[in-house]
């Protein structure tokens, strides 16, 4: 564990807590894409299949449980909670996210580190996470108003993978044979997808204006 990875995990944790806080306290999920939340639940479910078989550390297992629990409860809130579900703008959140999953699965079957059931699903979760934010970014461009909790959620979610990139660079230079091209490229693509969001988020913060993504 290094400071970059810890910062990344804490930023990731903060992003899901900000979203849970928003949904739980103001009982609203306006501006949040259910499609992205469903993709994230699938990302964690396919990433953490080894939670019962391989034990890395208390921290690792605890964080996996938190990410699994939070992502599935966010999906539950948005789909089934009587008050929250009414605030979900389903006619705006129309990204066909199942079309994202198939290419990720095919790519995982083609490009992976080891051709085992767990490893292919783990690689699938990596590719899926890289593109999981797309429905949310599309929704953001459609709904003009972005409340700052949703903006913070996306900012933290994008930032965590940026810290992970620093972690990979650090581990590459400090650990012999630490090379994971697949993880690195997927992580880089994921972070680059946030580039324009980061730009407009920074502008809105600098000019102290509402966050507006160009249509």
């Amino acid at each position: 564990m290094n400071i970059f990875r810890l910062a990344g995990d804490m930023t990731h944790l903060a992003s899901v807590l900000v979203l849970l806080l928003k949904i739980h306290t103001i009982k609203s999920c306006a501006g949040v894409s259910l499609k992205t939340q469903e993709l994230y639940a699938i990302v964690f479910a396919t990433r953490y299949l080894d939670i019962l078989t391989s034990f890395v550390s208390i921290y690792n297992t605890l964080m996996k449980l938190i990410f699994l629990g939070s992502s599935f409860s966010i999906v539950w809130y948005m789909k089934y909670h009587k008050t929250v579900r009414r605030t979900y703008d389903r006619d705006q959140d129309t990204f066909r996210h199942w079309f994202l999953m198939l290419p990720c699965l095919l790519l995982a079957l083609l490009i992976h580190e080891k051709f085992t059931f767990f490893e292919v699903l783990w690689t699938f979760s990596l590719y899926l996470e890289a593109v999981a934010i797309l429905p949310q970014l599309v929704l953001l461009q459609r709904t003009r108003n972005i409340d700052n909790l949703t903006g913070q959620y996306i900012f933290l979610l994008g930032g965590y993978r940026g810290f992970y990139i620093l972690n990979w660079i650090y581990r590459y230079f400090t650990e012999p044979h630490y090379v994971h091209w697949i993880t690195w490229i997927a992580g880089l693509v994921q972070t680059l997808l946030y580039a324009d969001f980061f730009y407009y988020y920074f502008l809105s913060w600098k000019n102290n204006k509402k966050l507006q993504l160009p249509a």
């Binding site: 990875r5 995990d9 990731h12 990433r47 080894d50 078989t53 391989s54 890395v56 690792n60 964080m63 996996k64 990410f67 085992t116 767990f118 490893e119 783990w122 992970y164 972690n167 993880t183």
Partner: peptide, 10 residues
């Protein structure tokens, strides 16, 4: 080597 699942990152 033993078929283990060596992902130590989240």
């Amino acid at each position: 080597e033993e078929e283990y699942f060596d992902h130590d990152e989240l």
